[in-house]
């Protein structure tokens, strides 16, 4: 892989990480802690919104963030043709040759 490609790959990687960490910070520290009393004025079912985000919602968002990260990074790796280990590449080749037949 050329230095230029490696540089671009790393820049896209940083962009993905930073935008996901912004969401991470917003949901936990902003919604779950700093604005929790304001959000508590909104109710749904038996929950106050701020309390729910702090004790449940933020955790669901954390899980979602990791899966969005996995998805975006897989796409990025594919774009730069990275992260195919030997087995996977062999499996791919076998499948392709079967497809041709």
């Amino acid at each position: 892989m050329s230095d230029k490609n490696a540089h671009e790959y790393w820049k896209s990687n940083i962009r993905i990480v930073l935008s996901l960490l912004t969401v991470w910070f917003f949901i936990s520290f902003v919604c779950g802690i700093l604005l929790v009393d304001v959000l508590d004025s909104i109710r749904f079912g038996g929950f106050k919104l701020g309390f729910w985000i702090a004790q449940q919602g933020a955790i669901f968002v954390f899980v979602a963030l990791i899966y969005v990260y996995i998805y975006l990074m897989d796409k990025l790796d594919d774009k730069y043709n990275l992260n195919r280990d030997a087995d996977e590449a062999a499996g791919q080749a076998r499948k392709e040759s079967e497809d041709i037949r």
């Binding site: 990480v17 996901l20 960490l21 936990s28 933020a58 954390f62 963030l65 990791i66 990260y69």
Partner: peptide, 8 residues
């Protein structure tokens, strides 16, 4: 939340 940092 630490796992988000760990993963990313």
């Amino acid at each position: 939340g630490g796992y988000v940092l760990l993963a990313l």
